[in-house]
Write a protein that binds this DNA or RNA. Structure first.
Length: 568
RNA sequence: CGGGGCGUAGCGCAGUCUGGUAGCGCACUUGGCUGGGGGUCAAGUGGUCGUGAGUUCAAAUCUCACCGCCCCGACCA
């Protein structure tokens, strides 16, 4: 490919709209252009890189036994009513009507479509197991599109769906996808990590997210320093610290203490001169319109996802001021579990606490010497705190967890029979009995993976593509495009490399060398070959890896083979 | 939706506080000198100052409303 035959438009300055390195670089290198918030055009170089991600995904899905299909992006709304997800996804679905006034949606995902399809197609255990996948554009009316392709309103996703005869049989399908994902991100040159994950609106109870580790990530994960445990903080657990003081045999009677204008945990613990962890933090949440209380140690935060799952609420958020007042009878800041008439959920680490301090549901008043078992009526002790760096690993006895940021590029779920039941997706088993299919679903954000690669692989001069994703693996710069010998040498080298299956771009522009060097670095081609009058005089090309600081000279004869050997 | 910031040429910005009819760098066009890390000289092209209303003799500048973009929170591949 010749530079002058494609379209590459680079920018000198960082566009003001971009914040993180990968977004800036995608715009500067001319990989994408913005139409409006969360909507982007893939320019030629961006498209080429995107196609490379797609090819790797497709190859690995095929290798894992996946069968490719392509489903409609537009779907009748009624299938979402069948699955019961219409209201859950109301907020994120683009909804339209056709000329018959029929309600349609632009698909944010395809569990409904595939299950509807499979319910008609599969009748017998002889057709199982099967995994179908597609690579397709998804539409989500994101609350906040962000960071270019990282969170867009329209994005490209690979989604796969497995169908098995039973929950146990589905393990193999799940594992096959999990393994394929590991290979995919490895081949993409990404430092990704599988972590245990919350299932959210998807349902099911077993899932892993694949996280690209980078500070720009929107998710927090914790990992154990001594074992394999890693989890999204939305569901991560911790080892319950042992209680240093246990004087249950000598319980002090509960008493009140005046705390004028001391609202926050920090205020009260300073005012009473006691450590924050002896405080029982009581937070009121709105669970489908009803108040519930969460109790955690004063120095900890509640993990809302874990609590929402425990409570079993669809819509779950912090209660507003009115609900807090209504539930506790006191202004915000004085909530406590004593005589509080809402369901109480306490963190496991509070079990056995007998000298706690807590709000008295009355302005300017707290209780002390609170015994959680004696003085409150906790509904459930469960793990509900947000895990953080320094907490003990829940799996091994010795490990400590540390926190990292990550971008979720893939997610695998074991779904069970939720959708199959809704759509009547059944089959006849060997005994002739009607059974419900067991499903799994598996997503990879193709466009997000592309940008994550740049986020993870760049330096101050531009992108440093993993070889597998680079739009071109080799860039040949002709320093003077009116020097005939240079042009001929570049042309024949290009031809030889292409015959070897290597993607090559020849920069044949009439530009000064500096411009070509800068663009080549910005675009991040793994190998740069310079063809000039000077080097040609010695029958040599100058070759430099994007990651190397200095070039090497190779002889023109056999240059293609030498370059092939150099390819990372 | 709540909180914060921004909107002036394709990109990056100044001018706004203190009103007087728009400027700089890069890019782009033509020509010259150049030719190994975004060169240089000369001459040019390009702007309803986000939109609408208002105040004023006069608005990029002041007022109000709306729109768009970005960042922080709830959503997720």
């Amino acid at each position: 490919m010749y530079w002058s035959n494609t379209y590459i438009s680079t920018l000198r300055d960082d566009p003001q709209e971009a914040e993180i390195p990968s977004h800036k670089l995608m715009l500067r290198a001319g990989l994408i252009r913005r139409l409006s918030g969360g909507l982007y055009t893939y320019m030629p170089m961006g498209l080429r890189a995107l196609r490379k991600v797609e090819s790797i995904v497709r190859e690995e899905m095929d290798r894992a036994g996946g069968i490719e299909v392509l489903m409609p992006a537009m779907q009748p709304r009624e299938i979402w009513e069948t699955s019961g997800r219409a209201d859950i996804l109301e907020g994120v679905m683009f909804q339209i009507t056709d000329r018959q006034d029929r309600a349609m949606v632009l698909g944010p995902t395809h569990e409904e479509v595939i299950t509807d399809l499979i319910s008609r197609e599969i009748n017998t255990y002889r057709q199982l197991p099967r995994t179908f996948y597609q690579i397709q554009t998804k539409f989500r009316d994101e609350i906040r599109p962000r960071f270019g392709l990282m969170r867009a309103k329209e994005f490209i996703m690979k989604d796969a769906y497995s169908f098995d005869v039973s929950w146990d049989a589905a393990d193999a399908s799940y594992q096959a996808m999990y393994d394929a994902y590991v290979r995919i991100f490895e081949r993409c040159g990404l430092n990704a990590r599988a972590v245990e994950a919350d299932t959210g609106a998807m349902g099911g109870n077993c899932s892993h997210e694949f996280m690209v580790l980078t500070d720009a990530g929107e998710d927090a994960i914790v990992e154990c320093a001594s074992c394999e445990y890693a989890a999204n903080t939305e569901r991560a657990e911790r080892r319950i610290p042992s209680r240093s003081t246990s004087h249950s045999e000598a319980l002090e009677p509960m008493s009140t203490v005046s705390t004028p204008n001391q609202r926050t945990i920090e205020d009260v613990s300073t005012f009473l001169d006691i450590p924050a962890e002896r405080m029982i933090k009581t937070l009121i949440f709105n669970a489908d319109g009803k108040p519930v209380a969460a109790l955690v140690p004063g120095d900890r935060d509640v993990c809302e996802q874990k609590l929402a799952q425990l409570v079993g609420a669809k819509n779950f958020e912090a209660a507003d001021e009115a609900m807090v007042k209504n539930a506790t009878g006191a202004p915000v800041g004085f909530a406590g579990p004593i005589n509080l008439d809402v369901p109480l959920f306490a963190d496991r680490s509070l079990e056995g606490l007998c000298d706690g301090i807590t709000g008295a549901n009355q302005k300017d008043l707290h209780y002390c010497n609170v015994s959680i078992e004696r003085d409150t009526t906790i509904q459930t002790f469960h793990d509900i705190v947000l895990v953080k760096s320094g907490d003990g690993c829940p799996r091994c006895d010795t490990g400590t967890l540390s926190e990292r940021r990550g971008v979720e590029v893939g997610h695998v779920f074991k779904l069970g029979t939720k959708y199959a039941e809704a759509f009547g997706a059944t089959f006849l088993d060997e005994g002739g009995d009607l059974q419900t299919l067991t499903m799994g679903c598996y997503g990879i954000g193709i466009s997000r993976t592309l940008q994550s690669a740049i986020e993870q692989c760049h330096d101050e001069n531009g992108i440093v593509w993993p070889s597998a994703l680079a739009p071109f693996q080799v860039a040949i710069l002709i320093l003077k495009n009116d020097h005939e010998a240079s042009c001929e040498a570049a042309a024949s080298l290009c031809e030889e490399l292409e015959a070897m299956g290597i993607d090559v771009i020849v920069d044949d522009r009439k530009e000064r060398p500096g411009v070509k060097f800068k663009d080549s670095d910005l675009l991040g081609f793994p190998v740069r070959v310079v063809v000039s009058e000077r080097s040609l005089a010695g029958d040599e090309f100058e070759v430099k890896l994007r990651t190397a600081s200095d070039p090497v000279m190779i002889s023109v004869a056999g240059a293609a083979n030498s370059i092939k050997d150099l390819l990372p």
